[in-house]
């Protein structure tokens, strides 16, 4: 039976296949990245590797929240700042298709309720798309960021 790491962002529940998770950290020292978009909270150092940290709440289109835990993904070189991590759970009665977001692969029933299983590849594509949109901003916006 497949197992997943259960995450909480706002009032919504999400799951990550355990094989896609590399490590869970609690409030590590976060380094500020200059000129980065608001989606990028900063960067952390994991075993001598610099990994960008994304705000999962902003990613799903909600208000930015204080993330206590940071989940480092295995394949893609990135980390997600989430509200809480509820530990491991078994994925029972998995239903294909996303509920609201393109990066949700399927929906399953966890011990804490209905949760959407995150597809890391689709998530990485979405992030790249969002970041490229951000990069195509005009020069005056860049200078405005610098001034800010």
């Amino acid at each position: 039976m497949a197992r997943a790491l259960l995450l909480a962002s706002g009032r919504a529940l999400f799951g990550l296949d355990i094989k896609e998770v590399r490590e869970v950290l609690k409030a590590p020292p976060l380094h500020y990245v200059p000129l980065a978009p608001a989606l990028v909270l900063g960067a952390i150092n994991i075993h001598d590797a610099v990994v960008p940290v994304f705000d999962f709440s902003q990613l799903r289109g909600a208000q930015s929240e204080v993330g206590e835990h940071i989940v480092v993904l295995q394949g893609a070189c990135m980390a997600l700042a989430v509200n809480a991590v509820h530990g491991l759970c078994s994925r029972t009665i998995a239903m294909p298709g996303g509920i609201m977001h393109p990066w949700v692969r399927e929906t399953f029933i966890s011990v804490r309720g209905l949760a959407g299983l995150i597809d890391p590849v689709a998530l990485q594509q979405t992030l790249e798309q969002r970041l490229s949109t951000t990069r195509s901003l005009p020069a005056e916006r860049v200078s405005e960021w610098i001034a800010r």
């Binding site: 790491l5 355990i18 094989k19 998770v21 590399r22 869970v24 609690k26 991590v85 530990g87 491991l88």
Partner: peptide, 17 residues
């Protein structure tokens, strides 16, 4: 205990892998 919990979680992840 919270750190222990996190360590156990990471250990579970490592063991699952």
């Amino acid at each position: 205990s919270q750190k222990t919990n996190l360590l156990a979680l990471n250990a579970s992840i490592e063991a699952a892998r």
